[in-house]
Design a protein around this nucleic acid. Structure first.
Lengths: 210, 210
DNA sequence: TTGAATTCAGAACAATCGTTCTCTATAATA
DNA sequence: TATTATAGAGAACGATTGTTCTGAATTCAA
């Protein structure tokens, strides 16, 4: 609709950003885009901002806007497909950014045991924990009980705070934990990530499509 | 080892970057760090560059360096208390590198439905898919069935290849999928990540420890 | 107590920054 | 053809940039 074909400029900028992880200044954008006049570069940037491909960062610098990472799926998926696949290039989106909001207060913990499988937290998963010494009932917390770190759901009744597991199938093995002396919160659960055991041999086994 | 305790500066910068997605100028770093002199800010930046937390981007700007996204990795959740000994070097992990091995062939895919909950794959999770048009039985694959992308387990019997769900409790709702014509593999599942709905209100609710 | 790092502050520098202004080409439209 | 919007160029503005220099205050070991 817009008369200026912005997509070629955007494309080159996206490539640049994938390489350098930075939106350059107008001067450098000029050379990147082969535009002689910085004023015109500035104009193009304005359009990109209007279209939400770019936005202003503090200090009147630029950063990628909400639509900057949009991308259609690669070949192989026919048109008319349900818009399900993430229109995101992993090289451009940092999972790290998505998962962690306060890096300085965030720690990763490997999960042991199956006490939280009902919440999709399995043994071997890495949980993202944001440090905090307080939490609310219903939150998943990493707590220190009797000098041990445990990931459980914080709960409360008339007797006070306690910890619950989330594994209905084996609920007898995981009774509520009532701390003998004190219940110390280490942090609360904000997310997790999981990597399957890489089937390095998968390339050599026979299978579908081969 | 280094005389200047750089970690507090780094921490605040990491938090800033998580918010703004940009490394600010020295002037703004000064206010962020409460340093009066830009020269001193510049000095700290030099140290951060030496330690590979920052690096130079084109245009003499700054961008995160290789170590900027390292996260401290706690011990196993059921193991003893972490960092009792201060001199124990904490393990470090970069989530993106950990999760994605072949960026150019990897896409992210948001999970819909609960057909794979037995494998700890819940609705809203982001699965990491490595592109491949072939797979082996037993692998979790992203397949294109009837022009729709589905995450299922690839299986095989005498009749040929088909797809299975993994939700025993509701197995009747997810019968095996035998493709009408052909079964097209889009890629295979290598991992996932999940972010809980950020409880922004959590700070205001009463709870334990407050 | 001396001396040397270290930690900070302030001033100053040329270079670059984003932005605005006026001025041509070019293309489309009427 | 004349008109008009678009695409591009060039100059110029004050502000901010990264960087360097000098010089205090503080710390700490000799």
């Amino acid at each position: 609709m817009q008369p200026l074909d912005i997509s070629s400029y955007l494309g080159r900028l996206q490539d640049y950003y994938a390489r350098e992880r930075i939106i350059p200044s107008t001067t450098q954008l000029s050379t990147l885009w082969n535009v002689k006049a910085r004023s015109w570069t500035h104009q193009i940037v304005q359009r990109l901002k209007e279209e939400n491909f770019l936005e202003n960062a503090p200090g009147s610098r630029l950063r990628p806007g909400p639509r900057f990472f949009e991308r259609t799926l690669g070949p192989g998926v026919r048109a008319g497909r349900p818009q399900q696949a993430a229109d995101v290039q992993p090289e451009l989106l940092r999972i790290d950014d998505y998962l962690i909001e306060k890096p300085s207060q965030t720690i990763l913990f490997p999960v042991k045991g199956d006490s939280m499988t009902d919440l999709g937290i399995l043994e071997g998963d890495m949980v993202v924990i944001e440090r905090s010494d307080s939490a609310s009932p219903g939150e998943v917390v990493l707590a220190i009980v009797d000098n041990e770190l445990t990931l459980k759901v914080l709960a409360r009744d008339k007797e006070g705070y306690y910890l619950e597991a989330r594994n209905e199938a084996r609920s007898k093995e995981y009774p509520p934990i009532r701390p003998r002396h004190k219940l110390e919160i280490y942090g609360f659960y904000v997310g997790l990530f999981r990597k399957t055991q890489v089937p390095g041999h998968r390339l050599h086994r026979p299978g579908f499509g081969r």
